[in-house]
């Protein structure tokens, strides 16, 4: 695999601290969600991205506030990294009226328009063309906004992916296709779904830039995203960014799915040694940051999470009378 190199050298200490904070936050939030699922307090299907945190954090650090991100079934990390409110996400997962989708969506349908998150939805590959449309919209409106489509390796099995790449390349649209290649689509390994491990080559075929990075190295992800975003903004068109990673938990819920795939146990051990958070901590210690100050970050995040869980628990359920609301958008004034 020809991976783009780490961007650690060019990252400041503050930047690294902020990456670490972002990744820790996603991890701890999802570990907590995993517990809530295990205890059955949360019933909506939750797909955890533990082990993959460097990708949303690295990519979103390269974005402006008004850039948009689009996601799928495994999008807690995308939502949080782009600035979605934690309380609103937790309440959504609890099915509460204070949730970001007022309890209509659960974990698989997150939204925060003010933060550029117009919707994450679980139909695989569904939002890839929508991101292309957001880029087209930005281009037509002359805003220089960039759109990011986050999707998995499984989504590249769908025609949506290939058609979208071609369209975006053809019209040189400011879109970043971020493939979080965790080597699995539910129970099927990449090998069971394609002859070659060459997702990134789709880029060259369709005439756009294609880059593979170590998706567990937040600095590499950040640097590659920054370059791609820059090209998009100055009108040089789209990039496919393949981020190699691995999900530590099962397809859905907190368990590890060890029965899936012949090599799952070995792979998991290997990838856990390649933990994005531990690597970032190690990097910070070479920059003279003490582990105490890193630990204090985690402690603060834990407090924030418990507050979000309290908020969700104490929030009201949606009212039955809301059932038929918003099937259609409210009519706008002329």
């Amino acid at each position: 695999m020809n991976c783009q190199k780490s961007g650690a050298i060019s990252c400041s200490r503050e930047q690294l601290m902020s990456f670490l904070y972002g990744m820790q936050r996603i991890r701890l939030v999802e570990e907590r969600i995993g517990e809530l699922v295990a205890s059955r307090e949360v019933r909506t299907p939750c797909h955890l991205s533990i082990g993959q945190e460097a990708i949303p954090v690295g990519v979103c650090a390269a974005l402006n506030e008004d850039d948009t991100v689009w996601g799928g079934h495994r999008s807690h990390g995308h939502y949080l990294a782009k600035g979605g409110d934690l309380n609103a996400m937790m309440a959504e997962i609890f099915g509460k009226a204070t949730g970001c989708a007022r309890g209509r969506g659960g974990s698989m349908h997150l939204v925060a328009p003010a933060q550029g998150i117009f919707g994450t939805v679980p139909l695989v590959a569904a939002t890839i063309p929508l991101a292309v449309g957001a880029a087209l919209s930005g281009k037509l409106r002359g805003t220089h906004q960039v759109a990011v489509a986050f999707f998995g390796d499984g989504a590249t099995d769908e025609g949506h992916f290939h058609e979208s790449l071609n369209l975006a390349a053809l019209y040189r649209l400011p879109v970043l296709f971020v493939c979080e290649n965790n080597l699995y689509s539910t129970h099927l390994t990449l090998k069971e779904r394609r002859v070659k491990d060459n997702i990134v080559e789709s880029a060259a075929l369709h005439g756009l830039a294609g880059v593979t990075v170590d998706g567990n190295d937040v600095t590499a992800v950040y640097q590659a995203a920054q370059q791609a975003v820059h090209r998009a903004r100055i009108g040089e068109g789209p990039t496919l960014l393949e981020c190699r990673t691995y999900r530590w938990r099962g397809h859905v819920g907190p368990a590890a799915d060890l029965e899936v795939g012949a090599d799952r146990r070995r792979e998991l051990d290997e990838w856990q040694r390649h933990d994005p958070i531990a690597q970032c901590r190690a990097l910070l210690s070479t920059r003279g940051v003490s582990s105490d100050s890193v630990d204090s970050v985690a402690a603060k995040v834990r407090e924030e999470i418990e507050a979000a869980v309290r908020f969700a628990r104490q929030s009201p359920d949606p009212d039955e009378s809301e059932l038929l609301q918003h099937v259609y958008a409210a009519r706008r004034g002329c």
């Binding site: 309890g103 659960g106 009212d319 809301e322 038929l324 099937v327």
Partner: peptide
């Protein structure tokens, strides 16, 4: 009812 399926258990119950 002519609406998409909601998630929240309370709304599912009504739906």
């Amino acid at each position: 009812p002519d609406a998409p399926a909601p998630t929240s258990a309370v709304l599912e119950q009504a739906y």
